[in-house]
Amino acid sequence: MSSTQDMQGAPVAKATMMIRRPAAEVFAAFVDPAITTKFWFSRGSEPLRPGGTAQWFWDWYGVSANVKVLDFEPGARLRIEWGDTGEMTTAEWTFTALSPERTYVRVVESGFRGDDKAVVARALGSTEGFNLVLAGAKAWLEHGIQLALVPDHFPEDARHLG
């Protein structure tokens, strides 16, 4: 099985990053929108919790995603179903403590739908996006720097450049 395919051979998005913070702190950064907004989306309706739902907003792009928490293991694992109605995918983060101050984060998104070309395009785009998110999380959690990687990735005045 390729690292970019699930058990059925369908493309998946995958990103990894070591972050020099305790696993509990890194986990909290992905469930508490007060922290997550420092490196990913512009606002969230509420913190993620076991069995809960939320909505995440990327105001600079005019989009949002519904989020349903499927698995919630503090400091270790988070699995959600997210997206728009009819376009939901599953994303899973694992947080592995390499030491008390170092956490290896792995995110895998699966369940992309559409024809082969659309599925591959969505998996590649999501891989790119999650790599930006993890890099932004690393900068924020390790150094307190907001890099604005997600909004700057596709700014409004450059969208015509495609």
Rank of each mutant, 00 (worst) to 15 (best):
T103V: 11
F154W: 15
T90C: 05
V150S: 08
V31H: 02
G136H: 04
A76Y: 03
M18W: 00
G86C: 09
E73P: 06
L78V: 03
A121Y: 03
P22K: 01
A123P: 04
T127Y: 07
Q5S: 09
P50A: 15
S110G: 08
T90N: 08
G86P: 03
S64E: 12
R21F: 12
K117T: 13
T53F: 09
A118T: 14
K68T: 14
P74I: 02
F154K: 13
P151A: 07
R43D: 00
L70P: 00
I145Q: 04
G162A: 14
F39Y: 15
S2C: 02
A118W: 01
F130D: 06
P155C: 11
A34M: 04
P22G: 04
G136T: 09
D157A: 13
L161T: 06
K38V: 10
T90A: 07
A137P: 06
A34H: 07
F30I: 05
A15Q: 08
T36K: 02
E92P: 00
E46T: 11
S45R: 14
F130C: 10
V12S: 05
Y104A: 12
A24G: 12
T4A: 06
T53M: 13
V119S: 04
K138Y: 02
A137I: 11
S126N: 14
A118N: 07
G111F: 01
E142G: 12
W140K: 00
A34I: 05
D116P: 08
L141E: 01
D59I: 08
W82S: 05
V31G: 03
V133R: 03
M1F: 07
S42C: 14
A15E: 07
T16Q: 05
H153T: 03
A34S: 13
T90H: 03
K138S: 00
N66S: 11
R102D: 10
T103P: 02
M1G: 12
P33Y: 11
Q146F: 13
P50W: 04
M88E: 10
K38W: 09
A97W: 01
G52T: 06
D152H: 08
I80W: 10
A118S: 15
